[in-house]
Amino acid sequence: MTHSSTKRMLVIALMTVTLASLCTHWFNRYYVGVAIDIGINIILAVSLNLINGHTGQFSLGHAGFMAVGGYTTAKFALVMQPILPTWLQPVIFIAGLLLGGLMAAAAGLAVGVPSLRLRGDYLAIVTLGFGEIIRVIFQNTESLGAATGLTGIPAWTNFGWAWGGAAVTVFVVASLVNSTYGRGFIAVHDDEVAAGASGVNPVRYKVTAFVIGSFFAGIAGGLYAHHKSFLSPTGFDFMKSIDIVVMVILGGMGRTAGVIIAAVLVTVLPEFLRGMAEYRMIIYSLLIIGLMIARPQGLFSFGKLGRTKA
């Protein structure tokens, strides 16, 4: 796909989303809520896919970056809203989202730099550790609501923002990976030593992947904060990170389209299983085990490019 056609697709996607968001009031609020969840999860899954799929690192702390973005955006809105006039709301919202993204990117840099020295399981554990540390910090910060959480965040996220964000994320990640520069991510994924020998600096690519991935996780966190109007540290625990990892694996690592479908599935499936809540997580865990035994390459990856190396 050439770059101009990707750009055209982004424009079309954004227009569709804008049109669709004008019609959301015709639908049941529950369905719109689930649709917004899907949009946010697409952002999370596609951004984690840049780190775990395309670059072949294994991060288990994506929820931590999401938390950094979410809390930053929410706090910014809560501080700014009473000071500034009402008509500036969209400005506060966008500025808050970007600020959240940047804070998360800074956290991503902090994780990415030590990650240069580690690989595989060790990296997974360190990112898990960072995620937990971030959670413990939020849990103990009084100004951020500590363990009870942050309440009264204005509900500004609508269908258009969530899916617009998703479209931009998909566009940025896809065009990045398909660019000349982005081939380096795939080179690092396929063989770090060989990539280094061919003049691709693995360290730089890994850190770049972490920073960009975390930026979008932060944006997703901000959208999430303004969607739920409530943030609590327990919402960003290890399980949330696992959820995002499952989306990436289910879709097939490094396959953007598959990951998007998987994000939709993982969001919608629990809603269907709501009636049997007590069995939900048991089914979910069996699904992970069965998937790994039967189709480790993901549900939606067929043929070509057998990228199974970890």
Partner: peptide, 26 residues
């Protein structure tokens, strides 16, 4: 999964852990 990539086994292990935790909570 003996000869599969390590990552696959790691994720399976997470799955097993979740399975034990949630079935025991039942």
């Amino acid at each position: 999964l003996r000869n599969r990539p390590k990552l696959t086994v790691l994720i399976t292990a997470i799955g097993v852990s979740l399975f034990i935790e949630y079935s025991c909570q039942h």
